[in-house]
């Protein structure tokens, strides 16, 4: 591969700022240009331009053979991806909302994840699933979930998610080039977030975490939109002389345990922050790895911060309080520093 895969952060020289949705579109467009077997399939990806505008304009550019609108049929969308991937295409299959992956669960979990293994390594599935997730939009319990832990739990699936337009583009390009099934979760609340994305081509490797802010006193291990809450909290606490390191894992599986441990061994304290229901969420895996592998380095128990044990409520004051916000992250960091829970 001619392109560097080692680049983990945006180069200082980058000046171009674009939305996360545009960054994702560029990733798809560039990979479609690079490889004629890449195509997009999903609901409203063509005429409508994608529920979150990621594929806007691509139907006009690529036509209906490569931007394939489907009826409402999530199991079929998941299966279309599998069948096409098994036979030589490189599909990008979109779920309009990750909540609807429930309908496609058999195809994703029993088929996509396991085919290669069950077939004794004789099949290859160069398949990317994309799905918006996350709360804060007022769309209530069936359109706001964070279900990434379900998928990270299944061997055969890789699971990634980005907090910046730069990472989103680089990660999605890597996913499309992967010969494995990769699920990219895209947080709805940051599609319209702007960030540096350089003109030239680059990749962000799957399985490599990124330290988004360096600090000495406590590590916040997080991903997707919550990374921004962590950064805001770090900024606030910096004014009080508290130095917070923010680690964006970017990839749930494979998980970059080395970067996480390096951070925790430096700060001796860890707050694991995620937007999914706290109980049984992916943060439990991170917390467990930290205590197993860095127990002696810890000055306080690893703290998990996640959403309430409830579906996401509709009403704004309930919804906003149901998942972590910056104030709660600040509070949790203080708790970690004081060792009081």
């Amino acid at each position: 591969m001619a392109v560097s895969t080692a680049q983990a952060s945006a180069p200082e020289t980058a000046t171009r700022e674009i939305f996360m949705s545009e960054a994702l579109r560029e990733a798809i467009d560039e990979e479609m240009t690079r490889d004629p077997t890449v195509f997009v399939v999903g609901e409203e990806v063509g005429v409508w331009g994608g529920a979150y505008a990621v594929t806007q304009g691509l139907l006009e550019k690529w036509g209906p053979d490569r931007i394939v609108d489907t009826p409402i049929a999530e199991a079929a969308i998941a299966g279309l991806g599998i069948g096409a991937a098994l036979t030589g295409s490189r599909p990008i299959a979109e779920f309009m909302y990750s909540d609807f992956m429930g309908i496609a669960m058999d195809q994703i979990v029993n088929q996509a994840a396991k085919n290669r293994y069950m077939f004794g390594g004789k099949a290859k599935l160069p398949l990317t699933y994309r799905a918006p997730f996350g709360a804060g939009t007022g769309n209530a319990a069936q359109h706001t979930q964070s279900l990434e832990a379900w998928f990270a739990h299944v061997p055969g699936l890789k699971v990634i998610t980005a907090s910046t337009p730069y990472d989103a583009k680089g990660l999605l390009k890597s996913a499309i080039r992967e010969d494995n099934v990769v699920i990219m979760f895209e947080h709805k609340a940051i599609y319209a977030m702007r960030g540096h994305v350089p003109e030239g081509e680059y990749l962000v490797p799957i399985g490599v975490a990124d330290v988004k802010r360096e600090g000495d006193d406590v590590s916040v291990i997080t991903y997707a939109r919550q990374t921004h809450h962590a950064l805001e909290a770090a900024e606030q606490l910096a004014a009080e002389g508290i130095s917070v390191e923010v680690v964006d894992i970017r990839s749930l599986y494979p998980l970059d345990t080395d970067t996480i441990l390096r951070s925790v061994r430096k700060t001796h304290r860890a707050v694991v922050l995620y937007e999914a229901v706290r109980f049984g969420g992916f943060g439990a895996e991170i917390a467990s790895q930290i205590q197993e592998l860095a127990f002696d380095d810890l000055d306080a128990p690893v703290l998990r911060v996640g959403a309430a044990h409830a579906p996401v409520p509709f009403s704004e004051p309930l919804e906003q309080a149901s998942f972590p916000g910056t104030a709660q992250v600040v509070e949790s960091i203080r708790q970690s520093l004081q060792g009081v829970y």
Binding site: D99, N139, A140, A141, Q142, F314, S315
Partner: peptide, 26 residues
Amino acid sequence: YCGGKGGSMHIADIELGNLGANGIVG
């Protein structure tokens, strides 16, 4: 109807026999 937990897409009134609006098509 739902104490604010459901919103437009989830109004139900079981007593009236309305088993619920639904956010999931089908």
